[in-house]
């Protein structure tokens, strides 16, 4: 049995699962109507936060509104970019731009109307937030909105990703 376990371990290593998860490359739609491949998301080597949300998801909106209050500060300190991906379908997708403007979000916002990006990133439910390093690799993720410092926790990981990028 020990031998079997050792081989399994070896198999696992040869699959290189210790690699960081790459951001999936699928098509989403910008609020300007342009089709954008998520593989082209870029922030010039600085960290990115990708947050999946929906207009009908109260905790998602709480989280993104809380980030909006400190976003300017985050950008100044780490150069981070927040990308908010709405999974609203045709019923609610026309409400996305009005909501974004009403809340005065300055995030990049995309529509994932048929949830291709959500599926490719293995997101079960919204909210689900990813922190990416400068190479579009996932360094951290969470699938809840925690009102006890959940947003600070995201930022902690953004700062780690930014610090790691500077070292390079």
């Amino acid at each position: 049995m020990k031998l079997a376990a050792a081989f399994l371990l070896f198999t696992a290593f040869t699959l290189k699962q210790d690699n960081l998860q790459k951001l999936a490359a699928v098509d989403v739609k910008g609020l300007d109507g342009k089709i954008v491949n998520t593989g082209t998301f870029s922030n010039n080597g600085k960290p990115i936060v990708v947050s999946f949300w929906a207009t009908w998801c109260a905790p998602c909106k709480k989280e993104l509104n809380e980030i909006a209050e400190v976003y300017e500060e985050w950008q100044k300190e780490t150069g981070v970019k927040v990308i908010a991906v709405s999974i609203d379908d045709a019923r609610n997708s026309p409400k996305v731009k009005p909501y974004v403007e009403q809340q005065e979000w300055t995030y990049e916002v995309y529509l994932d109307e048929n949830q291709d990006f959500k599926r490719a990133m293995n997101v079960n439910n919204v909210p689900h937030t990813f922190v990416l390093n400068g190479n579009n690799e996932v360094t951290w993720q969470t699938n809840v909105y925690n009102p006890n410092g959940g947003v600070e926790d995201i930022y902690k990981h953004v700062k780690e990703a930014a610090a790691a990028a500077e070292k390079k």
């Binding site: 026309p94 409400k95 731009k97 009005p98 909501y99 974004v100 403007e101 009403q102 005065e104």
Partner: peptide, 9 residues
């Protein structure tokens, strides 16, 4: 839709 800072219709 019409949307501008602070207002969405």
């Amino acid at each position: 839709t019409y949307a501008t800072k602070g207002l969405g219709i």
